[in-house]
């Protein structure tokens, strides 16, 4: 049985004066197995964040359903954590308090020492332990993003929802965080399944087991699902020479290009 099952999801945003209603999710079906890493890729506005929000339980779909471990999702739950596209740290709390509040809310029964330990572990993992007492506005966008990643991991979710978690980072930091993410996902944490929105084709191929390509109307919401059959661990330098890598890359480029032409 898949850990995450999405069945016939439809989601429209009602129109307002001057704005036509938008049918953003047009029958999304997706099964994600336990321990799988799935990337979502697609042009801006095709509904990637909307899909993630529905899975998180923040948005109610018009029809269709989301099952996590066989149970229908109606609200956010402790089994899912999210890294928001705009980081969404609480501005009045220090980085430490941001992570700690989330960890504490997720495990209200856990003793204080265990919470503190978890918080320190993940803040250190993203290299922010020295900056723990700063407010979000006192650190860079990339540091805020890393805090958001630490916060999501500190909750100990089984499913991690990432909305462009590395968008604001330079290439080097991004590479380091990608490794850390894989490391945390594979060994360190209770997180089993990852659903990650990205704009980076290379990032998607490097990280994912499968890549879901999403499209704008008139195309269906899910244009294609491409398996990435590259052995792990993948080395970012040598993996590029793998013929399978080239194949997936070309396929993605074709699909995204076609979608862009459809919109234009």
């Amino acid at each position: 049985m898949s850990q995450l099952e999405i069945d016939g999801l439809h989601m429209s945003f009602p129109g307002r004066r001057g704005i036509a209603p938008q049918h953003v999710l047009r029958g999304v079906d997706l099964q994600v197995g336990q321990g799988e890493f799935v990337s979502l890729i697609g042009h801006s506005g095709c509904g990637k964040s909307t899909l993630l929000n529905v899975v998180a339980g923040l948005l109610r779909p018009n029809s269709g359903r989301v099952l996590v471990g066989g149970q229908p999702v109606t609200a956010p739950g402790p089994d899912r954590a999210m890294v928001f596209q705009n980081y969404s740290l609480l501005p009045r709390l220090s980085l430490l308090a941001n992570v700690r509040e989330a960890a504490r809310s997720a495990n209200p029964q856990a003793p204080r020492e265990r919470i503190d330990e978890t918080v320190e572990r993940y803040l250190s993992a993203v290299g922010l332990w020295e900056h723990r007492n700063k407010r979000p506005r006192q650190v860079s966008g990339g540091m805020q993003q890393r805090t958001a990643v630490a916060r999501a991991f500190a909750v100990g979710p089984r499913i991690l929802l990432l909305d462009e978690p590395f968008g604001a980072l330079d290439a080097l930091t991004r590479a380091r965080l990608q490794e850390q993410l894989l490391e945390l996902w594979a060994n360190e944490s209770t997180t089993e399944t990852v659903l990650m929105v990205t704009h980076g084709i290379d990032e998607a191929i490097l990280l994912a087991d499968r890549i879901v390509v999403m499209g704008n109307p008139p195309q269906p919401s899910i244009v294609d699902i491409i398996p990435v059959e590259l052995p792990r661990p993948r080395d970012r330098v040598t993996v590029i020479d793998d013929p399978a890598y080239r194949q997936v890359q070309q396929r993605l480029l074709d699909l995204l290009h076609a979608d862009q032409q459809a919109v234009a």
């Binding site: 899912r80 954590a81 501005p91 504490r104 997720a106």
Partner: peptide
């Protein structure tokens, strides 16, 4: 909205929501 969503996703208790989000804001 996004701070409200943080409270929902991370399941802040009512008390924590008021103390860490509503009052500071």
């Amino acid at each position: 909205e996004d701070q409200h969503n943080v409270a929902r996703v991370f399941r802040f208790s009512r008390f924590s929501y008021v103390r860490n989000i509503v009052i500071p804001h």
